[in-house]
């Protein structure tokens, strides 16, 4: 057995274990994305980084424990790094939540984005569409496709449109996808703009959002 200190709490794990085993045994948690025990331990997503006693940042899922190792799972530095990593992951993630099979509460990225306050995933990701008709299909100007997720979508859950109270996503690909959806469901953009003005009237990127939506909406099938 090897003695490890997780957030200064002593815990014993078997030899050949990894930090993540010790962390879990000590009752703490680290977020993971690419890690699947017994199947994948390549540490490529880096979201599970923890800080060691000597100040190094290492991935908990693939770093073997050693005697007397000190691990800190939630320091300021770890959180800052995780946040940036998450932003990078989201930056390379194709955000098409409307057609994603993991939407409606199964999206780990969404949970992380919410925890670390990173913009990127629209409300559509958590709008629990199970047995629930999409409001866009009904022809209502729902702001779900362009609003930052994290509220748990209480409005769309109750059948009223999302009014964007959490602020807009300014990413181009998300906006383009949204404009495509609005067009597909024949929702006039003026109505969407009108709803956008409810909460985003002073948002610095409002003009940019308008332009991207308009461009894509009027631009036809141009890619």
């Amino acid at each position: 057995m090897v003695k490890v200190y997780v957030n200064d709490k002593e815990v014993e794990v078997g030899e050949g274990s990894y930090i993540i085993d010790a962390v879990i045994k000590a009752g703490y948690s680290v977020p993971t994305l690419c890690f699947f025990k017994g199947i994948y331990r390549e540490a490529s997503c880096r979201i599970c980084i923890v800080e060691l006693g000597n100040g190094r940042l290492v991935p908990a899922c693939a770093y073997p424990v050693s005697e007397g190792l000190r691990v800190y799972t939630n320091t300021e530095r770890v959180r800052r790094n995780r946040r940036v990593i998450l932003e990078l992951i989201l930056a390379s993630h194709k955000i098409k939540c409307q057609s994603c099979p993991r939407k409606g509460g199964f999206c780990q990225l969404l949970d992380l984005a919410r925890e670390y306050g990173v913009e990127g995933i629209p409300v559509c990701a958590e709008c629990p569409l199970h047995g629930n008709e999409c409001l866009l299909v009904r022809g209502e100007p729902c702001l779900g496709p362009i609003t930052i997720a994290g509220c748990g979508s209480p409005c769309t859950r109750e059948g009223t449109i999302c009014i964007g109270c959490r602020g807009p996503i300014t990413r181009r690909d998300v906006l383009v996808e949204a404009a495509r959806l609005y067009k597909e469901h024949k929702i006039p953009l003026e109505e969407v703009f009108s709803k956008m003005k409810l909460f985003w009237n002073n948002h610095p990127s409002l003009d940019k959002i308008y332009n991207i939506l308009l461009e894509t909406y009027n631009g036809g099938e141009k890619k």
Binding site: P154, R157, E158, T160
Partner: peptide, 8 residues
């Protein structure tokens, strides 16, 4: 629907 700002 929720505690403040009803939406049902």
């Amino acid at each position: 629907g929720r505690i403040v700002n009803p939406n049902t």
